[in-house]
Design a protein around this nucleic acid. Structure first.
Length: 271
DNA sequence: AGTCGCCTGGTA
DNA sequence: TACCAGGCGACT
């Protein structure tokens, strides 16, 4: 599911909901999704208090006492729900962390691509996060962005979605940012002019901000920590709009494949 | 740089 | 029946 705006929405909610809660237990029916193992995670986190919640790229980071961090990656269909232990469980529930005050943190994941990962200590945290490129709202500056584009002939959309180059952009927001900037998704990154690069840089921030404002895109399985839908799906510019009219020129939005992913763009506006 | 695998389910 | 799906790591 989730790209930067969706994970950010969950993070902001969980930061409030989880602060100060104590972990009583963790259980799973899909041990493959618990790293390094259920046994190790259990041994380390039971009895620990939750200190805070952060996000790096599309990875959620739940900070515990004793320099422990529980990383959660939702991949395509993961959900993280904060619920009362009396509420009915989801059909695709994969793991549960029971908390103080009769609360639970529930990890649902239809396709089982996501995972929970125990990270011990600062060194391990650093090595876990070192693969990620700059954050759009923190340290992604235009000088870096411009240089990144001139450094490769890969299709610009592939570059935008490369987490080692820029963090947090996935398929939905890549498509929409490219539309806003009027850049063709298949265009080699190093063929993009400085002016267009600036436009694209601004568009990335614009679509991610919109995503956060609408609390994410609930197109398929994404729901926030309380099980509520976001509404960015009502504001898609190109994503999933193949055959529909371009909001700028009225031409038909086209769908192609790029890097194996569905790619949507206006063939008239995006050159 | 491009393709495949991981999984399950919805839809044409 | 075939193809599609907010991701990403391991392969060529």
């Amino acid at each position: 599911m989730p790209e930067l705006p969706e994970v950010e929405t969950i993070k902001r909610d969980l930061a409030k909901l989880l602060a100060g809660k104590k972990i009583f237990n963790i259980s799973t029916n899909t041990p493959k999704q618990i790293r390094p193992s259920l046994k190790t995670v259990k041994k380390n986190i039971i009895g620990k208090k939750i200190k805070g919640v952060k996000r790096r790229a599309k990875l959620l980071l739940i900070f515990l006492e004793d320099n422990l961090v529980l990383g959660v990656h939702l991949k395509m269909t993961g959900q993280l729900f904060f619920k009362k232990n009396t509420e009915p469980k989801n059909k695709h529930q994969r793991a549960v962390i029971t908390l103080s005050e009769g609360k639970e943190l529930r990890f649902n994941d239809l396709r089982k691509f996501g995972y929970l990962q125990l990270i011990k200590g600062k060194k391990e945290l650093d090595s876990t996060l070192e693969k990620y490129g700059p954050e759009p709202f923190l340290d992604l500056d235009f000088v870096y962005f411009k240089k990144l584009l001139t450094s490769t002939s890969r299709a610009i959309k592939i570059v935008l979605m490369d987490q080692s180059k820029i963090s947090g952009i996935g398929n939905i927001y890549a498509n929409d940012a490219l539309f806003l900037a009027r850049v063709n998704p298949a265009k080699p990154a190093n063929k993009i002019t400085a002016g267009k690069a600036k436009k694209l840089y601004n568009s990335i921030h614009q679509v991610l901000k919109a995503g956060i404002r609408f609390r994410g895109a609930s197109d398929q399985s994404y729901l926030d920590a309380l099980g509520q839908k976001g509404s960015y799906q009502d504001h898609f510019l190109t994503y999933k709009r193949a055959g529909e009219k371009c909001f700028n020129c009225g031409a038909k939005i086209k769908r192609i494949k790029l890097g194996g992913r569905g790619t949507f763009y206006c063939p008239i506006c995006q050159k």
